[in-house]
């Protein structure tokens, strides 16, 4: 037997998974083989190192999320009922957001997603606000806010029930070769639908001539006001997508999406998550789109004070997602 085989046996020896005969055989070999003796000594030392490894403290226990968790059984339809309670603004916005996220999932589902991309601190420089990033690239000249837009923006600020959405993490993702601009604008439009957006994105990246037809995926009440896509310089396929949309109430939202810095998984599934702040409460949401999308559900996590309370299912967006995936397959 080679020493590599004995290395496996040494591991099993530490796990007490060898028979008595195997154990005796191994120990006899170790006594005569300096390499295996060193391996055993190293493994034993590392077991000690691992046992000594310090942990971290969990977040403090929160009565609020506990209470909500305890009440979870009564909240099977919380997502929908909460949407109702929060009114059309939030309902439409969440639906629009989920659909937008779905659309981005679908893009990656079909294309296989961007290639392996190292971190890009520069994308963290994207500023929030109505003219965010406009000065960065100069690619958005000619986009002017109408008076209606300004009024709607003011309305957004004053409405306590507005869906305030925050980044769940810093934007330290993407790719930026040294000495090159952080982002390359590839598409911008004051008005567009997602079909056009993803066509542009697909053409720019991995699907030349094969646009994604995602028309009809936006909820009818949502109006896309501006779409902007930028990508990192080649060879990266990292991209940045910004969509501004409004609901009939005048409330306006901005979705920012930055492609991941991780390589695509070997299976054609995608997953996403984020945090929404609605009326002072944080909502965690996530999509799971596995190999067979019909076997999964959209998950929506509701939480307060940053603590997750429950994990719920949103049926309507899922139906849309399944329909779209079936259509695209």
């Amino acid at each position: 037997m080679s020493c590599s085989v004995y290395r496996t046996a040494i591991s099993r020896y530490l796990d007490e998974a060898l028979s008595e005969a195997e154990r005796r055989h191994l120990l006899a070999h170790v006594q005569s083989c300096s390499q295996c003796a060193a391996t055993l000594a190293e493994y034993r030392a590392l077991e000690t190192v691992l046992r000594r490894a310090q942990g971290i403290h969990a977040p403090s226990f929160s009565q609020s999320w506990l209470s909500a968790s305890a009440a979870n059984a009564r909240r099977a339809s919380l997502f929908r009922s909460s949407i109702t309670n929060l009114g059309l603004v939030s309902a439409g916005a969440i639906a629009a957001g989920l659909v937008l996220l779905l659309a981005s999932s679908l893009f990656l589902f079909v294309t296989g997603g961007p290639s392996n991309i190292p971190p890009i601190p520069a994308l963290a420089a994207i500023e929030p606000g109505p003219r965010a990033g406009a000065e960065d690239t100069g690619a958005r000249s000619g986009q002017h806010s109408s008076p209606d837009t300004t009024a709607a923006r003011a309305s957004t600020r004053s409405n306590p029930d507005d869906m305030k959405v925050k980044a769940s993490r810093p934007f330290a993702v993407g790719y930026q070769p040294a000495g090159q601009p952080a982002r390359v604008p590839i598409y911008t439009s004051p008005t567009a639908d997602l079909a056009v957006v993803y066509t542009a994105l697909g053409d720019s990246l991995t699907r030349p001539g094969k646009p994604l037809d995602l028309s009809g995926t936006l909820p009818p009440e949502a109006t896309v006001e501006r779409v902007m896509i930028e990508r990192a310089p080649a060879p990266s396929q990292a991209y940045y997508l910004e969509v501004v949309f409004a609901l009939p109430t005048g409330t306006r939202y901005r979705l920012q999406e930055i492609s991941a810095d991780a390589p695509p998984p070997s299976t054609p599934g995608v997953a996403e998550e984020g945090t929404l702040l609605i009326a002072g409460k944080a909502w965690k949401y996530g999509y799971i789109v596995p190999r067979d999308p019909r076997g999964e559900t959209v998950r929506v996590f509701r939480s307060t004070a940053g603590n997750r309370i429950t994990n719920l299912e949103a049926a309507a967006p899922l139906d849309e997602m399944v329909q779209m995936l079936q259509y695209l397959r």
Partner: peptide, 30 residues
Amino acid sequence: DHLRRRKLIAWLPWSGEDGSQERGEDSVAD
């Protein structure tokens, strides 16, 4: 499950907060 996920979606408000309240990653002490 978490490790299987690969995409990052970031939502920002149209105006106001910028998500800066997010905690950073590991402290130096870690």
